[in-house]
Design a protein around this nucleic acid. Structure first.
Length: 139
DNA sequence: ATCGGAATGA
DNA sequence: TCATTCCGAT
């Protein structure tokens, strides 16, 4: 079966909030949750890596509203929250494609890690003799 | 549909 | 800080 790629993050990727003890589920966590679940109707992965399509905007809003205890949530308001992710570089819009957005996975981890370096170092890179190195300058 | 300012809440 | 709400502009 063509399974959805499970997108799992290490614990520390799930951003602790500024207010300890009152952590709230974040929208992008919720989206990943549905996406990873292959929840069917409301949302699904798109063509490119990290791209997703909202098939049923109002349904998604309903689910999000239930999770947050906001019965009057709708797509207009949910999408405003998505737009705030643009500056944070968590998401961007796939222009020209209706209801289609794309995760910036590489940024997600960094942006949400409270103070590098990570306590648990990732797998040590195994550089081959043939290396294509791309240097990213941090902002 | 999509964008982003502004006020407000938790 | 991350939304929620409202809304005028594109």
């Amino acid at each position: 079966m063509v399974s959805n790629a499970a997108v799992l993050f290490p614990d520390w990727a799930y951003k602790p909030t500024w207010s300890p003890g009152s952590r709230q589920i974040q929208l992008w966590h919720f989206l990943l949750e549905l996406l990873g679940r292959g929840e069917g109707g409301a949302i699904g992965w798109g063509g490119e890596w990290g791209e997703f399509v909202i098939r049923d905007p109002e349904m998604l809003a309903r689910l999000w509203g239930e999770r947050k205890g906001k019965p009057h949530m709708n797509y207009d308001k949910l999408s405003r929250a998505l737009r705030y992710y643009y500056n944070k570089r968590i998401l961007h819009k796939t222009k020209g494609k209706r209801f289609t957005y794309k995760f910036n996975f590489s940024k997600l981890i960094l942006v949400n890690y409270p103070g590098y370096p990570p306590p648990a170092p990732p797998a040590p890179p195994a550089p081959s003799h043939q290396v294509i190195h791309h240097v990213f300058t941090s902002s």
